[in-house]
Amino acid sequence: MATNAHTEAPGGAHKGPFPPFNAETFASQLVWLAIIFVALYLLAARVALPRVASILESRRDRIAGDLAEAQRLKTESDEALATYEKSLADARSRAQTLANQMREQQNAQAEAARKALEQSLNAKLAEAEKFITVTKAAAMGSVRGIAADTAGAIVARMIGSPPRAAAVEAAVDDVLKG
C-alpha cells in the first residue's frame, strides 16, 4: 500500500526498516507468491478438487446403490415372509375344517349308534313290560282262583259245608281290591 513507503524511509535508527514494511523485499515476495499461488490454484482446480469430488460422488452413489439394494432385499424377504405366513394360515385353517368335519362325522355316528341302541332298548323294555303285564294279569287271575279255592276250602272246613262259589269270589274280589 502507498502508506507503507513512508514507514520504510527513516528506519535507519537501528538495523534497517521494520522487516514487514521493507519495500526492498516486496518484489521477490510478490513474484514468488504469484508463482506459488497460481500453481496451487491450478493444482486445486485441475487435479485435487475434481478428484476429491469424484471420490465423494462415487461414495454417495455407492451408498445410495447399497441402500436401494438393501431395500430391495428387504422387500423380497418381506414378501417371502408374507407368503410363508399365508400358507401357514391356510394349512392351519384347513386342518381346522378337517378336524371339524371329523368331529361332526363322529358325533353323527355316535348319535346314530346311541339312537339305535336306545330304540332297541326301548323295544325290549316295552316287550318286557308287556310280558310283565300279561304275566301279572295271568298271575292275578291264578291268585284269584287260588284265593277263592283256598277261601272256599277254609270256609268249608270252618262251617262244614262249602259256601257258594259266587259269594266266595265276591269276597275275594273285595279283599284284592282293598
Binding site: T25, A27, S28, Q29, V31, W32, L33, I36, A39, L40, L43, A44, V47, A48, L49, R51, V52
Partner: peptide, 22 residues
C-alpha cells in the same frame, strides 16, 4: 528477485497442500 526464506516457506506450504490433497 531473490529466493528468500519467505519463498521457501511458500514452497513448503505448497508441497504440504499438494501432498495432502494428492
Amino acid at each position: 528477485i531473490a529466493f528468500t526464506n519467505s519463498a521457501l516457506f511458500m514452497l513448503i506450504a505448497f508441497a504440504i497442500v499438494a501432498l495432502l490433497m494428492l
